[in-house]
Design a protein around this nucleic acid. Sequence first.
DNA 1: AATAACTTGCACAGCAGTGTGCAATTTATT
DNA 2: AATAAATTGCACACTGCTGTGCAAGTTATT
Lengths: 218, 218
Amino acid sequence: MTTPAPRRPRQDAVDNRAGILTAATTAIAHDPQASIDTIARNAGLSRRALYGHFADRNALVTEIIDAGAERFNRIALSVTDADAQLALARLTSLLWQEAAHVQVAASIALDDAHLASTGKALAPLRAAVAAVLQRGQDNNTLRTDVDVATLARLVEEAARAAITRVDAALPDARSLAVRTTLSMAGLSWRETVALLEQHPEILGDPAADAAPATDVER
Amino acid sequence: MTTPAPRRPRQDAVDNRAGILTAATTAIAHDPQASIDTIARNAGLSRRALYGHFADRNALVTEIIDAGAERFNRIALSVTDADAQLALARLTSLLWQEAAHVQVAASIALDDAHLASTGKALAPLRAAVAAVLQRGQDNNTLRTDVDVATLARLVEEAARAAITRVDAALPDARSLAVRTTLSMAGLSWRETVALLEQHPEILGDPAADAAPATDVER
DNA sequence: AATAACTTGCACAGCAGTGTGCAATTTATT
DNA sequence: AATAAATTGCACACTGCTGTGCAAGTTATT
Protein backbone atom coordinates (compact mmCIF):
# COMPACT_ATOMS: atom_id res chain seq x y z
CA MET A 1 0.00 0.00 0.00
CA THR A 2 1.35 3.42 -0.92
CA THR A 3 1.03 6.53 1.19
CA PRO A 4 -2.52 7.93 0.76
CA ALA A 5 -1.31 10.94 -1.24
CA PRO A 6 -1.51 13.84 1.24
CA ARG A 7 -3.69 16.43 -0.44
CA ARG A 8 -3.05 20.07 0.36
CA PRO A 9 -5.71 22.01 2.33
CA ARG A 10 -8.74 23.21 0.44
CA GLN A 11 -8.79 26.79 -0.73
CA ASP A 12 -11.93 27.77 1.18
CA ALA A 13 -10.41 26.34 4.33
CA VAL A 14 -7.31 28.47 3.89
CA ASP A 15 -9.46 31.54 3.36
CA ASN A 16 -11.57 30.74 6.37
CA ARG A 17 -8.54 30.36 8.57
CA ALA A 18 -7.28 33.76 7.46
CA GLY A 19 -10.77 35.16 7.94
CA ILE A 20 -10.82 33.92 11.51
CA LEU A 21 -7.50 35.60 12.19
CA THR A 22 -8.58 38.99 10.92
CA ALA A 23 -11.97 38.69 12.60
CA ALA A 24 -10.22 37.81 15.84
CA THR A 25 -7.86 40.74 15.43
CA THR A 26 -10.64 43.28 15.13
CA ALA A 27 -12.80 41.61 17.73
CA ILE A 28 -10.01 41.43 20.28
CA ALA A 29 -8.92 44.96 19.48
CA HIS A 30 -12.42 45.99 20.46
CA ASP A 31 -12.71 43.68 23.46
CA PRO A 32 -9.78 41.65 24.76
CA GLN A 33 -12.08 38.88 25.92
CA ALA A 34 -14.29 38.54 22.92
CA SER A 35 -15.80 35.06 22.97
CA ILE A 36 -14.87 32.34 20.52
CA ASP A 37 -18.43 32.39 19.30
CA THR A 38 -18.32 36.12 18.57
CA ILE A 39 -15.10 35.74 16.64
CA ALA A 40 -16.36 32.78 14.65
CA ARG A 41 -19.62 34.54 13.76
CA ASN A 42 -17.72 37.66 12.70
CA ALA A 43 -15.72 35.42 10.39
CA GLY A 44 -18.92 33.95 9.00
CA LEU A 45 -18.33 30.55 10.54
CA SER A 46 -19.80 28.46 13.31
CA ARG A 47 -18.07 28.19 16.65
CA ARG A 48 -17.53 24.52 15.98
CA ALA A 49 -15.72 25.16 12.71
CA LEU A 50 -13.24 27.46 14.38
CA TYR A 51 -12.02 24.57 16.47
CA GLY A 52 -11.13 22.83 13.25
CA HIS A 53 -8.52 25.51 12.63
CA PHE A 54 -7.26 26.32 16.11
CA ALA A 55 -6.82 23.93 19.01
CA ASP A 56 -8.09 26.42 21.58
CA ARG A 57 -8.45 30.07 22.34
CA ASN A 58 -4.84 30.36 23.32
CA ALA A 59 -3.56 29.04 20.01
CA LEU A 60 -5.61 31.65 18.23
CA VAL A 61 -4.44 34.49 20.43
CA THR A 62 -0.84 33.37 20.20
CA GLU A 63 -0.96 33.42 16.44
CA ILE A 64 -2.35 36.95 16.44
CA ILE A 65 0.36 38.11 18.78
CA ASP A 66 3.01 36.57 16.58
CA ALA A 67 1.61 38.30 13.53
CA GLY A 68 1.85 41.63 15.31
CA ALA A 69 5.34 40.85 16.53
CA GLU A 70 6.58 40.22 13.03
CA ARG A 71 5.17 43.49 11.76
CA PHE A 72 6.58 45.43 14.69
CA ASN A 73 10.00 43.91 14.33
CA ARG A 74 10.11 44.73 10.66
CA ILE A 75 9.32 48.34 11.48
CA ALA A 76 11.89 48.50 14.24
CA LEU A 77 14.58 47.22 11.91
CA SER A 78 13.63 49.52 9.05
CA VAL A 79 14.24 52.74 10.94
CA THR A 80 17.89 53.67 10.83
CA ASP A 81 17.99 57.45 11.25
CA ALA A 82 20.95 58.64 13.27
CA ASP A 83 18.92 61.61 14.51
CA ALA A 84 16.86 60.47 17.50
CA GLN A 85 14.00 62.87 16.85
CA LEU A 86 13.71 61.70 13.28
CA ALA A 87 13.95 58.05 14.26
CA LEU A 88 11.20 58.42 16.83
CA ALA A 89 9.01 60.27 14.36
CA ARG A 90 9.47 57.65 11.68
CA LEU A 91 8.84 54.80 14.09
CA THR A 92 5.55 56.33 15.14
CA SER A 93 4.52 57.09 11.61
CA LEU A 94 5.09 53.49 10.54
CA LEU A 95 3.38 52.08 13.61
CA TRP A 96 0.39 54.25 12.90
CA GLN A 97 -0.25 52.13 9.82
CA GLU A 98 -0.52 49.09 12.07
CA ALA A 99 -3.22 50.59 14.25
CA ALA A 100 -5.19 47.36 14.49
CA HIS A 101 -2.18 45.41 15.68
CA VAL A 102 -1.16 48.13 18.09
CA GLN A 103 -4.67 48.04 19.47
CA VAL A 104 -4.53 44.28 19.88
CA ALA A 105 -1.16 44.36 21.58
CA ALA A 106 -2.42 47.01 23.98
CA SER A 107 -5.62 45.10 24.70
CA ILE A 108 -4.01 41.75 25.28
CA ALA A 109 -1.23 43.24 27.34
CA LEU A 110 -3.87 44.16 29.92
CA ASP A 111 -4.47 40.48 30.50
CA ASP A 112 -2.03 38.84 32.86
CA ALA A 113 -2.38 35.56 31.01
CA HIS A 114 -0.80 36.87 27.83
CA LEU A 115 1.42 39.50 29.38
CA ALA A 116 4.50 37.37 28.90
CA SER A 117 3.85 36.62 25.25
CA THR A 118 3.06 40.22 24.34
CA GLY A 119 6.17 41.27 26.19
CA LYS A 120 8.25 38.91 24.13
CA ALA A 121 6.56 40.08 20.96
CA LEU A 122 7.21 43.73 21.71
CA ALA A 123 10.73 43.23 23.02
CA PRO A 124 12.65 44.10 19.84
CA LEU A 125 10.53 47.17 19.22
CA ARG A 126 10.97 48.28 22.80
CA ALA A 127 14.69 47.74 22.59
CA ALA A 128 14.83 49.89 19.47
CA VAL A 129 12.87 52.66 21.16
CA ALA A 130 15.08 52.54 24.23
CA ALA A 131 18.17 52.79 22.04
CA VAL A 132 16.75 55.78 20.19
CA LEU A 133 15.81 57.53 23.42
CA GLN A 134 19.22 56.88 24.90
CA ARG A 135 20.86 58.32 21.84
CA GLY A 136 18.64 61.37 22.06
CA GLN A 137 19.52 61.94 25.67
CA ASP A 138 23.24 61.61 25.04
CA ASN A 139 22.77 64.03 22.18
CA ASN A 140 20.67 66.44 24.17
CA THR A 141 18.09 66.29 21.40
CA LEU A 142 15.48 64.65 23.68
CA ARG A 143 14.42 65.42 27.24
CA THR A 144 16.88 64.47 29.96
CA ASP A 145 14.70 65.06 32.99
CA VAL A 146 13.53 61.42 33.06
CA ASP A 147 15.49 58.18 33.04
CA VAL A 148 15.34 56.21 29.82
CA ALA A 149 13.25 53.37 31.20
CA THR A 150 10.49 55.65 32.46
CA LEU A 151 10.61 57.80 29.37
CA ALA A 152 10.23 54.70 27.24
CA ARG A 153 7.08 53.72 29.09
CA LEU A 154 5.62 57.20 28.74
CA VAL A 155 6.46 57.45 25.06
CA GLU A 156 4.93 54.04 24.46
CA GLU A 157 1.74 55.08 26.24
CA ALA A 158 1.58 58.33 24.31
CA ALA A 159 2.00 56.54 21.02
CA ARG A 160 -0.62 53.98 21.95
CA ALA A 161 -3.07 56.69 22.93
CA ALA A 162 -2.44 58.73 19.80
CA ILE A 163 -2.75 55.73 17.52
CA THR A 164 -5.68 53.92 19.09
CA ARG A 165 -7.69 56.66 20.75
CA VAL A 166 -7.80 59.20 17.94
CA ASP A 167 -10.10 58.78 14.99
CA ALA A 168 -7.90 57.47 12.20
CA ALA A 169 -10.22 59.07 9.68
CA LEU A 170 -9.16 62.56 10.68
CA PRO A 171 -7.13 64.09 7.86
CA ASP A 172 -4.01 64.63 9.96
CA ALA A 173 -4.39 61.64 12.26
CA ARG A 174 -1.03 60.25 11.30
CA SER A 175 0.73 63.56 11.71
CA LEU A 176 -0.94 63.99 15.08
CA ALA A 177 0.31 60.62 16.25
CA VAL A 178 3.85 61.60 15.40
CA ARG A 179 3.58 65.00 17.02
CA THR A 180 2.14 63.40 20.15
CA THR A 181 5.06 61.04 20.55
CA LEU A 182 7.56 63.82 20.02
CA SER A 183 5.78 65.97 22.58
CA MET A 184 6.13 63.22 25.12
CA ALA A 185 9.80 62.98 24.23
CA GLY A 186 10.26 66.58 25.25
CA LEU A 187 9.76 68.76 22.19
CA SER A 188 7.47 71.74 22.19
CA TRP A 189 4.56 71.50 19.80
CA ARG A 190 6.11 74.14 17.53
CA GLU A 191 9.29 72.10 17.31
CA THR A 192 7.28 69.02 16.31
CA VAL A 193 5.49 70.97 13.60
CA ALA A 194 8.76 72.39 12.32
CA LEU A 195 10.39 68.98 12.25
CA LEU A 196 7.56 67.52 10.21
CA GLU A 197 7.69 70.43 7.80
CA GLN A 198 11.36 69.81 7.20
CA HIS A 199 10.81 66.08 6.71
CA PRO A 200 7.50 65.62 4.94
CA GLU A 201 8.59 62.17 3.74
CA ILE A 202 8.02 60.87 7.26
CA LEU A 203 4.29 61.04 6.72
CA GLY A 204 4.37 59.55 3.24
CA ASP A 205 3.45 55.92 2.56
CA PRO A 206 6.21 55.16 0.01
CA ALA A 207 8.64 54.61 2.87
CA ALA A 208 11.51 55.91 0.75
CA ASP A 209 14.29 54.54 2.90
CA ALA A 210 17.96 54.18 2.09
CA ALA A 211 17.47 50.43 1.72
CA PRO A 212 15.71 49.07 -1.37
CA ALA A 213 13.22 47.16 0.76
CA THR A 214 11.93 44.79 -1.88
CA ASP A 215 12.07 41.19 -0.69
CA VAL A 216 9.51 40.40 1.94
CA GLU A 217 10.16 36.74 2.66
CA ARG A 218 13.36 34.73 2.40
CA MET B 1 -47.54 48.40 70.16
CA THR B 2 -44.81 51.03 69.71
CA THR B 3 -42.28 51.05 66.88
CA PRO B 4 -39.56 48.51 67.70
CA ALA B 5 -36.93 51.19 68.33
CA PRO B 6 -34.75 51.16 65.19
CA ARG B 7 -31.21 50.60 66.37
CA ARG B 8 -28.39 52.12 64.33
CA PRO B 9 -26.02 49.77 62.46
CA ARG B 10 -23.33 48.07 64.48
CA GLN B 11 -19.87 49.60 64.47
CA ASP B 12 -18.12 46.55 63.06
CA ALA B 13 -20.64 46.43 60.25
CA VAL B 14 -19.91 50.03 59.36
CA ASP B 15 -16.20 49.30 59.37
CA ASN B 16 -16.67 46.21 57.27
CA ARG B 17 -18.70 48.09 54.71
CA ALA B 18 -15.95 50.66 54.41
CA GLY B 19 -13.39 47.87 54.28
CA ILE B 20 -15.20 46.28 51.38
CA LEU B 21 -15.19 49.56 49.51
CA THR B 22 -11.46 50.12 49.86
CA ALA B 23 -10.72 46.47 49.13
CA ALA B 24 -12.87 46.70 46.03
CA THR B 25 -11.13 49.90 44.98
CA THR B 26 -7.67 48.37 45.08
CA ALA B 27 -8.82 45.06 43.65
CA ILE B 28 -10.63 46.67 40.74
CA ALA B 29 -7.76 49.07 40.14
CA HIS B 30 -5.62 45.99 39.69
CA ASP B 31 -8.18 44.01 37.71
CA PRO B 32 -11.45 45.52 36.48
CA GLN B 33 -13.23 42.20 36.79
CA ALA B 34 -12.02 41.08 40.16
CA SER B 35 -14.55 38.60 41.51
CA ILE B 36 -16.86 39.30 44.41
CA ASP B 37 -15.11 36.54 46.29
CA THR B 38 -11.68 38.08 45.79
CA ILE B 39 -12.91 41.45 47.00
CA ALA B 40 -14.64 39.98 50.04
CA ARG B 41 -11.57 37.94 51.01
CA ASN B 42 -9.35 40.99 50.62
CA ALA B 43 -11.66 42.78 53.02
CA GLY B 44 -11.40 39.88 55.46
CA LEU B 45 -14.99 38.79 54.95
CA SER B 46 -16.82 35.92 53.35
CA ARG B 47 -18.45 36.31 49.99
CA ARG B 48 -21.81 35.80 51.62
CA ALA B 49 -21.30 38.65 54.07
CA LEU B 50 -20.59 41.08 51.26
CA TYR B 51 -24.09 40.55 49.94
CA GLY B 52 -25.34 41.81 53.29
CA HIS B 53 -23.87 45.20 52.46
CA PHE B 54 -24.37 45.47 48.71
CA ALA B 55 -27.27 44.15 46.69
CA ASP B 56 -25.09 43.01 43.81
CA ARG B 57 -21.83 43.66 42.05
CA ASN B 58 -23.24 46.65 40.28
CA ALA B 59 -24.26 48.40 43.49
CA LEU B 60 -20.72 48.00 44.75
CA VAL B 61 -19.11 49.27 41.58
CA THR B 62 -21.51 52.19 41.37
CA GLU B 63 -20.65 53.29 44.86
CA ILE B 64 -16.94 53.20 44.06
CA ILE B 65 -17.48 55.26 40.95
CA ASP B 66 -19.48 57.80 42.91
CA ALA B 67 -16.73 58.08 45.49
CA GLY B 68 -14.23 58.82 42.76
CA ALA B 69 -16.59 61.27 41.13
CA GLU B 70 -16.92 63.28 44.31
CA ARG B 71 -13.17 63.51 44.76
CA PHE B 72 -12.62 64.51 41.16
CA ASN B 73 -15.30 67.14 41.27
CA ARG B 74 -13.83 68.67 44.39
CA ILE B 75 -10.49 68.90 42.66
CA ALA B 76 -11.96 70.38 39.49
CA LEU B 77 -13.71 73.07 41.50
CA SER B 78 -10.67 73.89 43.62
CA VAL B 79 -8.46 74.90 40.72
CA THR B 80 -9.11 78.49 39.78
CA ASP B 81 -5.87 79.70 38.18
CA ALA B 82 -6.45 82.10 35.32
CA ASP B 83 -3.25 80.89 33.67
CA ALA B 84 -4.04 77.74 31.68
CA GLN B 85 -0.62 76.20 32.14
CA LEU B 86 -0.77 76.67 35.88
CA ALA B 87 -4.32 75.37 36.05
CA LEU B 88 -3.42 72.23 34.14
CA ALA B 89 -0.37 71.69 36.30
CA ARG B 90 -2.33 72.07 39.51
CA LEU B 91 -5.09 69.79 38.31
CA THR B 92 -2.62 67.05 37.53
CA SER B 93 -0.79 67.51 40.79
CA LEU B 94 -4.00 67.13 42.78
CA LEU B 95 -5.20 64.19 40.74
CA TRP B 96 -1.90 62.47 41.37
CA GLN B 97 -2.89 62.16 45.00
CA GLU B 98 -5.95 60.20 43.94
CA ALA B 99 -3.98 57.63 42.02
CA ALA B 100 -6.11 54.72 43.22
CA HIS B 101 -9.32 56.37 42.09
CA VAL B 102 -7.80 57.43 38.79
CA GLN B 103 -6.74 53.85 38.28
CA VAL B 104 -10.25 52.60 39.04
CA ALA B 105 -11.89 55.09 36.73
CA ALA B 106 -9.52 54.09 33.96
CA SER B 107 -10.06 50.39 34.56
CA ILE B 108 -13.83 50.52 34.73
CA ALA B 109 -14.06 52.84 31.78
CA LEU B 110 -12.72 50.01 29.64
CA ASP B 111 -15.87 48.05 30.39
CA ASP B 112 -18.82 48.91 28.20
CA ALA B 113 -21.21 48.10 31.03
CA HIS B 114 -20.01 50.94 33.22
CA LEU B 115 -18.90 53.29 30.49
CA ALA B 116 -21.94 55.47 30.96
CA SER B 117 -21.58 55.80 34.72
CA THR B 118 -17.87 56.59 34.58
CA GLY B 119 -18.59 59.11 31.90
CA LYS B 120 -21.10 60.84 34.11
CA ALA B 121 -18.71 60.72 37.03
CA LEU B 122 -15.89 62.27 35.06
CA ALA B 123 -18.04 64.82 33.26
CA PRO B 124 -17.36 67.81 35.50
CA LEU B 125 -13.65 67.14 35.57
CA ARG B 126 -13.60 66.78 31.82
CA ALA B 127 -15.55 70.00 31.42
CA ALA B 128 -13.04 71.80 33.60
CA VAL B 129 -10.12 70.44 31.59
CA ALA B 130 -11.78 71.41 28.32
CA ALA B 131 -12.35 74.92 29.61
CA VAL B 132 -8.74 75.23 30.68
CA LEU B 133 -7.47 73.96 27.34
CA GLN B 134 -9.75 76.32 25.47
CA ARG B 135 -8.48 79.22 27.52
CA GLY B 136 -4.90 78.18 26.83
CA GLN B 137 -5.52 78.03 23.10
CA ASP B 138 -7.21 81.43 23.03
CA ASN B 139 -4.25 82.70 25.00
CA ASN B 140 -1.67 81.02 22.86
CA THR B 141 -0.18 79.53 26.00
CA LEU B 142 -1.05 75.97 24.95
CA ARG B 143 -0.68 74.16 21.65
CA THR B 144 -3.09 75.18 18.91
CA ASP B 145 -2.33 72.48 16.37
CA VAL B 146 -5.09 70.21 17.68
CA ASP B 147 -8.76 70.88 18.31
CA VAL B 148 -9.79 71.09 21.94
CA ALA B 149 -11.75 67.84 21.99
CA THR B 150 -8.87 65.76 20.68
CA LEU B 151 -6.36 67.56 22.85
CA ALA B 152 -8.51 66.86 25.87
CA ARG B 153 -8.49 63.15 25.14
CA LEU B 154 -4.73 63.12 24.67
CA VAL B 155 -4.08 65.12 27.81
CA GLU B 156 -6.35 62.80 29.75
CA GLU B 157 -4.50 59.76 28.46
CA ALA B 158 -1.14 61.31 29.25
CA ALA B 159 -2.22 62.13 32.78
CA ARG B 160 -3.63 58.65 33.27
CA ALA B 161 -0.41 57.07 32.04
CA ALA B 162 1.80 59.30 34.15
CA ILE B 163 -0.28 58.73 37.27
CA THR B 164 -1.00 55.04 37.02
CA ARG B 165 1.90 53.64 35.05
CA VAL B 166 4.79 55.27 36.85
CA ASP B 167 5.97 54.01 40.22
CA ALA B 168 4.47 56.43 42.73
CA ALA B 169 7.38 55.69 45.06
CA LEU B 170 9.84 57.47 42.81
CA PRO B 171 10.98 60.68 44.50
CA ASP B 172 9.73 62.96 41.74
CA ALA B 173 6.77 60.89 40.62
CA ARG B 174 4.36 63.73 41.24
CA SER B 175 6.49 66.26 39.45
CA LEU B 176 6.84 63.87 36.55
CA ALA B 177 3.10 63.46 36.27
CA VAL B 178 2.71 67.23 36.01
CA ARG B 179 5.50 67.59 33.50
CA THR B 180 4.02 64.81 31.40
CA THR B 181 0.65 66.48 31.17
CA LEU B 182 2.21 69.79 30.26
CA SER B 183 4.29 68.13 27.58
CA MET B 184 1.18 66.73 26.02
CA ALA B 185 -0.35 70.18 26.15
CA GLY B 186 2.46 71.48 23.98
CA LEU B 187 5.23 72.72 26.23
CA SER B 188 8.83 71.67 25.78
CA TRP B 189 10.30 69.75 28.67
CA ARG B 190 12.49 72.73 29.62
CA GLU B 191 9.43 74.95 29.81
CA THR B 192 7.72 72.45 32.11
CA VAL B 193 10.76 72.37 34.39
CA ALA B 194 10.95 76.16 34.46
CA LEU B 195 7.27 76.50 35.23
CA LEU B 196 7.55 74.13 38.17
CA GLU B 197 10.59 75.98 39.49
CA GLN B 198 8.67 79.23 39.46
CA HIS B 199 5.67 77.65 41.18
CA PRO B 200 6.97 75.10 43.65
CA GLU B 201 3.73 75.28 45.62
CA ILE B 202 2.06 73.23 42.91
CA LEU B 203 3.87 70.15 44.12
CA GLY B 204 3.24 70.83 47.82
CA ASP B 205 0.56 68.97 49.76
CA PRO B 206 -0.75 71.94 51.81
CA ALA B 207 -2.77 73.07 48.79
CA ALA B 208 -2.29 76.71 49.75
CA ASP B 209 -5.10 78.06 47.62
CA ALA B 210 -6.72 81.45 47.73
CA ALA B 211 -9.73 79.89 49.46
CA PRO B 212 -9.48 78.90 53.13
CA ALA B 213 -10.48 75.32 52.29
CA THR B 214 -11.42 74.17 55.75
CA ASP B 215 -14.91 72.65 55.85
CA VAL B 216 -15.15 69.34 54.08
CA GLU B 217 -18.79 68.43 54.64
CA ARG B 218 -21.85 70.68 55.02
C1' DA C 1 -18.94 11.33 -10.44
C1' DA C 2 -16.32 9.91 -6.62
C1' DT C 3 -13.77 11.24 -2.75
C1' DA C 4 -11.94 13.53 0.83
C1' DA C 5 -12.12 17.90 3.14
C1' DC C 6 -14.71 20.98 5.36
C1' DT C 7 -18.74 22.80 7.89
C1' DT C 8 -22.83 22.53 10.72
C1' DG C 9 -25.80 21.61 14.56
C1' DC C 10 -26.58 19.39 18.58
C1' DA C 11 -25.56 17.29 22.84
C1' DC C 12 -22.64 16.96 26.56
C1' DA C 13 -19.35 17.82 30.44
C1' DG C 14 -16.86 21.08 32.77
C1' DC C 15 -15.50 25.46 34.91
C1' DA C 16 -16.00 29.94 37.08
C1' DG C 17 -18.75 33.26 38.54
C1' DT C 18 -23.29 35.34 40.46
C1' DG C 19 -27.04 35.77 43.66
C1' DT C 20 -30.25 33.59 47.22
C1' DG C 21 -32.12 30.79 51.28
C1' DC C 22 -31.30 29.04 55.66
C1' DA C 23 -29.55 27.26 60.04
C1' DA C 24 -25.80 27.82 63.14
C1' DT C 25 -22.58 30.73 65.27
C1' DT C 26 -20.18 34.83 66.78
C1' DT C 27 -20.23 39.57 68.33
C1' DA C 28 -21.64 44.47 69.52
C1' DT C 29 -24.84 46.82 72.03
C1' DT C 30 -28.35 47.60 75.70
C1' DA D 1 -27.26 38.55 80.61
C1' DA D 2 -30.43 39.27 77.02
C1' DT D 3 -31.16 40.68 72.46
C1' DA D 4 -30.65 41.89 67.98
C1' DA D 5 -27.22 42.38 64.41
C1' DA D 6 -23.84 40.48 61.74
C1' DT D 7 -21.12 36.73 59.83
C1' DT D 8 -20.31 32.07 58.25
C1' DG D 9 -20.73 27.94 55.57
C1' DC D 10 -23.30 25.23 52.81
C1' DA D 11 -26.53 24.06 49.26
C1' DC D 12 -28.78 25.44 45.31
C1' DA D 13 -30.15 27.32 40.73
C1' DC D 14 -28.62 29.97 37.05
C1' DT D 15 -25.69 32.09 33.38
C1' DG D 16 -22.06 32.29 30.03
C1' DC D 17 -18.24 30.44 28.30
C1' DT D 18 -14.92 26.56 26.78
C1' DG D 19 -13.77 22.35 24.45
C1' DT D 20 -15.13 17.68 22.51
C1' DG D 21 -17.73 13.83 20.05
C1' DC D 22 -20.53 12.56 16.41
C1' DA D 23 -23.78 12.19 12.58
C1' DA D 24 -25.43 14.59 8.67
C1' DG D 25 -24.84 17.81 5.23
C1' DT D 26 -22.20 20.76 1.83
C1' DT D 27 -18.37 21.85 -1.19
C1' DA D 28 -13.69 21.89 -3.44
C1' DT D 29 -10.80 18.97 -5.79
C1' DT D 30 -9.41 14.90 -8.58
